[in-house]
């Protein structure tokens, strides 16, 4: 029987892919294989079975130390051949997205990355992803014999599929060490923020005239118990760190409340909040596109409206 193969370097994402992949594979009449790569990969292998995989291909060749993209792609191409895989699901993390292109090229495969939903339609996988900078959503079908999809984290929910047999296999991989060398690793600077999990978000845009004025947005976020986020332009000014960006090049959030302050509403930003339950916009320009996306719109000067909001919220 042909297989679907799932792989992510991030164990949580791999488990999500196994759960989602198991359902899709069943619809397509495929078995589900997983790959666990890198030194110590045998450890997580058993878990991938519990997550939904029938077979787990373990590759702990020394050439996979530090997971260089060229060698991971080569190892996966060899596993695809061994498993007779027709499609490969990767996690669309940064590493996974980088891997998708290289693996697809090795396999002569078409690919879709940053996939935010993946379904079976007329016997084929169809992935949706943003296009035109987020203005539109494209539904993409891959036409090659082997197909590669890089699926965004949290598209599938771990633990929603029955466990697979989890048979552990050790394919004979033929790899040579990558010329790329890891010379250092450090955690990201600044406090970690997970905007995609935040229930309330205050977003700041270029309506703020200077960096210090962002204290107004911080006060509002504090009064709401919200996380502070921003447009890409504020991060480009280095007023806020990159991990606070909401939009195409940052977090795709789905909070209960998104309160955008001084944000005009270009799609590259709004694509990151369009799944919010309630959207509020505060902007001086009544014609700003953000109001077309807003449930509640406040046309006004943020330097007056935000302090008034903070006062009202504190008064309860």
């Amino acid at each position: 029987m042909a297989d679907m193969l799932i792989y992510s370097e991030a164990p949580a994402v791999a488990c999500e892919l196994a759960a989602g992949g198991r359902r899709l594979a069943a619809e397509l009449g495929l078995g589900l294989s997983a790959a666990a790569l890198g030194p110590g990969a045998a450890g997580p292998a058993a878990e991938l079975g519990a997550c939904g995989a029938d077979r787990v291909f373990v590759g702990d060749d020394p050439a996979l130390t530090d997971l260089p993209t060229d060698m991971v792609a080569e190892a996966l191409a060899q596993v695809v051949a061994e498993a007779g895989a027709e499609c490969v699901l990767l996690g669309s993390t940064r590493r996974g997205k980088e891997l998708a292109g290289r693996l697809a090229q090795k396999l002569g495969a078409g690919a879709a990355t940053d996939v935010m939903s993946l379904t079976v339609r007329d016997g084929a996988l169809v992935g949706s992803r943003y296009s035109l900078g987020g203005a539109t959503v494209a539904e993409v079908r891959v036409e090659t014999p082997v197909k590669v999809f890089a699926v965004m984290p949290k598209v599938f929910e771990a633990g929603t599929a029955e466990a697979g047999a989890g048979e552990v296999l050790r394919p004979q991989l033929s790899l040579t060490p990558s010329p790329v060398e890891v010379v250092g690793r450090a955690p990201r600077e600044g406090e970690a923020v997970d905007l995609e999990a935040a229930p309330l978000i205050v977003g700041a845009g270029r309506g703020f005239a200077k960096r210090e004025d962002l204290d107004l947005a911080r006060d509002l976020a504090a009064a709401l118990g919200a996380e502070l986020a921003c447009t890409k332009s504020l991060a480009d000014f280095e007023w806020l760190p990159e991990d606070r960006i909401v939009g195409l090049s940052g977090a795709k959030a789905s909070p209960d409340l998104y309160l955008g302050v001084g944000i005009s509403g270009q799609v590259q930003h709004t694509v990151g909040v369009s799944r919010a339950k309630t959207i509020v916009a505060v902007n001086t320009d009544k014609d700003a596109p953000i109001f077309q996306l807003a449930d509640y719109g406040v046309v006004g000067d943020l330097y007056e409206v935000v302090p008034a909001l903070v006062e009202k919220l504190k008064a309860g």
């Binding site: 060229d70 980088e98 697809a104 090229q105 090795k106 992803r129 195409l248 090049s249």
Partner: peptide, 11 residues
Amino acid sequence: YSGEVGSRLAE
């Protein structure tokens, strides 16, 4: 924003 071309070109 597929990020594919650089990786495909490297390969």
